[in-house]
């Protein structure tokens, strides 16, 4: 899949999102017009309208360029090797497995903190993340996990007085 094709899919998905917003979500989850001022739906509708208009324009531009057989510059049509454009975004291929390998443990941490408590969940999370990143040592991950979790516990509980879920250490 080329970058242009992927961008077109993104624009189509944005269009679908806008249609769903305009037809279903904004009318059903916005308060009714109170009789004065601007309608509560005005600004959401304008925002979605801008997104929709820009997506249609971009799609049209790509389609017309393809129809006219116009040569697209390589930097706009191919994925850069370094996955970097001007230091702002990192245009590149999506590494879905990589993404999931980090997001899933993070999601499990949220569930873990709520069920078994902060200390065991955060400790296990730190071990897992270090293993995924590629830590091959035995002692270091334990030390890092223990230190980070304990330090954060002390800062949160005694520094900021924030309630920590689960059993308290001391």
């Amino acid at each position: 899949m080329t970058r242009i094709q992927r961008d077109n899919i993104a624009y189509i998905l944005i269009l679908v999102f806008c249609v769903v917003m305009l037809i279903w979500l904004i009318p059903n989850f916005t308060p009714p017009y109170p009789g004065y001022g601007a309608s509560p739906a005005l600004v959401p509708n304008v925002s979605v309208g801008i997104m929709m208009a820009m997506s249609i324009l971009a799609l049209l531009k790509n389609l017309l360029a393809a129809y006219a057989g116009k040569q697209v510059p390589p930097e706009e049509s191919e994925f850069p090797d370094d996955a970097q454009t001007g230091g702002f975004t990192q245009v590149g291929r999506i590494k879905l497995f990589h993404l999931l390998s980090f997001i899933v443990p993070c999601g499990l941490l949220v569930v873990g903190i709520n069920t078994i408590g902060y200390l065991p969940a955060a400790f296990l999370f730190m071990l897992v993340i270090q293993y995924i990143i590629g830590s091959k040592k035995l002692i270091q991950p334990f030390v890092v996990s223990l230190s980070a979790v304990a330090l954060m516990y002390i800062i949160m509980r005694y520094g900021f007085g924030v309630p920590i879920p689960g059993p308290q250490l001391f």
Binding site: T30, P31, Y36, G37, P44, I50, M54, A58
Partner: peptide, 29 residues
Amino acid sequence: SRGLIAAAFGLLVGMVGTEPVTALPRLTF
């Protein structure tokens, strides 16, 4: 165009919460 889409999306996400005039929930699902 992508910049404007992103800015408009930011506006939309920022509108989640209580609507300032009616003080009723908006886009809170």
